[in-house]
Design a protein around this nucleic acid. Structure first.
Lengths: 110, 110
DNA sequence: TTTATTCATCGTAATATTGCAATGTACAAA
DNA sequence: TTTGTACATTGCAATATTACGATGAATAAA
């Protein structure tokens, strides 16, 4: 199949999975880290920065954009990308809630 | 290809991606949430709980185990699973560092 | 207008993922 | 020993993902 049965899970579970999946690839992690590092738009040098072919980078950017984590704007011949702060914070909230589930009540039992 | 070029990324980037990938599927999110919810080992009822076929659940459990997020122990005919607290905390640290990158310095620029 | 640059899209190949039926394995109960 | 239960593994089909060459579209420079 290769097709996740999303309909049997809650919206929350699917949302967590979607956010996690998007940086479940090192190239997208690297892209996001670079955007934070330079702390502004990145216009053009992502292909050199990451080290994958241009169509590959373009595809990863598309996925990040589709989820809303980054925004792009055309700037002459190049395109500038930056973090979408609102969405990033939303994601942070969703994932932190998942990561911070209470594990203090007891120790491992097996 | 379908094969990520992990060798061109840092260990840290690959680690973030690995952790994220493992709960980039709603079934694994549901499994982990259930383990937290009952706050002890789960022995057997995961198939009923999640709603996927037994081999499918078994496969997802295997991936969670491979990364070390859960531990399993044989208990008679059934097998009990629980969260591996140490690994979970480690993952939390790694992912929080990624999620908490500084976004305060400036607003969106495109 | 021609040329160069930048990026997106298309097409394709290789591999991974998801899901399940069938089957195997290990243990417990009868 | 036989039967049943619980789970893992195997094998397979369908789909998704990753990567890149080739090409297209848009703009800037010459």
């Amino acid at each position: 199949m290769g097709l996740a049965k999303t309909e049997i899970f809650s919206d929350q579970q699917n949302e967590i999975a979607s956010f996690a999946k998007v940086f479940g690839h090192p190239a997208r992690v690297a892209i996001l880290q670079h955007l934070f590092k330079i702390n502004s738009c990145v216009c053009g040098d992502l292909v050199n920065e990451i080290g994958l072919a241009q169509p590959t980078i373009s595809q990863h950017l598309k996925e990040l954009k589709l989820l809303g984590l980054i925004k792009g704007s055309v700037e002459g011949t190049s395109v500038c990308y930056c973090i979408n702060t609102d969405k990033w914070l939303k994601m942070k909230g969703v994932l932190n809630q998942f990561l911070n589930q209470d594990i203090s009540t007891q120790g491992d039992c097996c």
